[in-house]
Write a protein that binds this DNA or RNA. Structure first.
Lengths: 186, 186
DNA sequence: GAAAAAAATTAACAAATGATAAAAAATGAA
DNA sequence: TTCATTTTTTATCATTTGTTAATTTTTTTC
């Protein structure tokens, strides 16, 4: 998905504002397994995924995957982006990826100069917020197998592209539990 | 907490922009038990809490409380605010409340006219997003008693002001489980 | 302050999920 | 293709959380 389409998909932008954003973006590619972004560091870029698949995870005793990003989505360390503080997430590429890179510093400048871009940034955060809130509520309402069925319904392609251990952790259960659930459904 | 302080607390605003917002706000009061906002309706206002305490819950077989709002916080049906669609949450007043009311429509106009207000709205969404993301991760990492201890540490006053059934549901467990956890801790 | 109502706790048992280990299946490298 | 490695499944047992019902405590109302 090319940058123009990605930007518009987040929220419609006047041509001039879109160009201002595009002028600050460079293309960049990494291969599967690359760690794009390390936990506990302030990250100074954000990325848009042109092609490929990544995951965000937090590490303690075990790794907990809490987000998958695919074509058209935005890779961002929220803590860095919002509060200029080290983030908790590590981003790992699950496939070879082509990305667009944008310096947070430049984006901030544009936020202050251009009301359309400021509102575009607002819309981005708002939409992410709704997605996160819905996941939180789903977690509170549904048991593991309901959450699995929901994921299968909403993002069936993830199951083809991501190994089950990461899916299990995303659902908040162990891989063994997920295997059990899959066996029961068949 | 008065409106000027609430607005600044979300994100600093130039005096003129702050006044523009304040001019669109009216004061309003309701008593404990009042339902401020009904699920499955498009809500056309947002509210800032001057004084009091509210909860947001979703209803299926049971009620699931997923948010508490107190002095200085913002009451908002995200689905209405962001997508103009009926929200999933009902807002109930847990104490007598004094609120500031702001029409979403007027706020949208200000977003388009004033870059400072647009960025203020962006910051609001971004900060809410971080809070929600942290809760989601906490839910994925921690068991019920760890989440209870975390809540006691971060928001001890809630335990004084909110009945335990609502706390339990916020933590994603039954009231009976919460009682058991409290008994174990002592 | 007594009675009624609501909220919180406790107990006993059921169900869901976790932990560990072993086996089977799938994937990748030589 | 074959061997080694990684991923997934299965089985067993432990732990956590849920369900229901009874009891105690707290709050509200008259």
């Amino acid at each position: 998905m090319d940058i123009s389409k990605i930007l518009d998909h987040i929220h419609e932008l006047p041509e001039q504002s879109k160009l201002a954003l595009q002028n600050n973006v460079i293309e960049i590619a990494f291969s599967k397994g690359h760690i794009l972004l390390k936990a506990n560091k302030v990250e100074s870029n954000i990325y848009f995924i042109k092609k490929g698949l990544v995951r965000a995870f937090v590490e303690r005793d075990n790794e907990v995957t809490f987000w998958f990003g695919k074509e058209g989505e935005t890779i961002i360390s929220m803590k860095s982006y919002v509060e200029d503080q080290p983030g908790y997430e590590t981003i790992e590429l699950l496939e070879d990826c082509e990305l667009y890179e944008l310096k947070t510093e430049n984006l901030r400048k544009l936020f202050n100069e251009d009301v359309h871009i400021a509102n575009w940034g607002r819309k981005f955060a708002e939409k992410e917020l709704i997605k996160t809130e819905e996941r939180l509520i789903s977690k509170q309402f549904k048991n593991a197998s309901e959450r699995y069925l929901e994921l299968m319904k909403d993002h069936p392609e993830l199951l083809q592209r991501v190994q089950l251990g990461h899916i299990a952790s995303y659902l908040g259960i162990t891989q063994v539990s997920l295997s059990r659930i899959r066996a029961e459904i068949k």
